[in-house]
């Protein structure tokens, strides 16, 4: 098993123009909350709210590229978005292995994304299988 309970990881991500535009280009979600500054402000936000699922892209990168082995697969994940993410937000990502099932080669990793004010903008857990 390449992971042990308590292993922790840190990464940093930025929701850049490229990431935001790439997401819209690929998936087509142009809901005004994400694309219309005035609409988003009218709903009580400080500006266009970045798609929460952009953070799932960062999670995919984390699992696929940042773990000590490439022999991994995501079995499932849960994510909540307690606070909004805005354009060019720098996000601190923290992850810790919370459970290991040696018998079936599975690790549960809990994670949080925080903005520069320390607010949690996303949190959840991923179940990873070792191939």
């Amino acid at each position: 098993m390449i992971l042990s309970k308590g292993d922790n990881f840190k990464e940093s991500f930025i929701v850049t123009d490229d990431v935001y535009n790439g997401f819209i280009h690929v998936f087509g979600d142009r809901n005004p909350l994400h694309t219309d500054e005035q609409f988003a402000i009218g709903k009580g936000f400080s500006g266009k709210v970045m798609h929460g699922n952009i953070l799932n892209g960062f999670l995919s990168y984390f699992v696929g590229e940042c773990l000590p082995s490439k022999d991994v697969i995501i079995h499932g994940q849960e994510i909540k978005f307690p606070n909004p993410v805005y354009m060019n937000d720098r996000l601190a990502f923290e992850a810790v292995v919370s459970e290991i099932s040696e018998a079936v080669g599975v690790a549960i990793i809990k994670f949080k994304f925080r903005n520069i004010f320390g607010k949690i903008v996303a949190k959840g857990e991923i179940q990873i299988g070792m191939l």
Binding site: H75, G76, S101, V104, V106, Q127, G129
Partner: peptide
């Protein structure tokens, strides 16, 4: 089966 084992554990 993997999901079942994880859930039972």
């Amino acid at each position: 089966h993997i999901q079942l084992i994880v859930a039972i554990e």
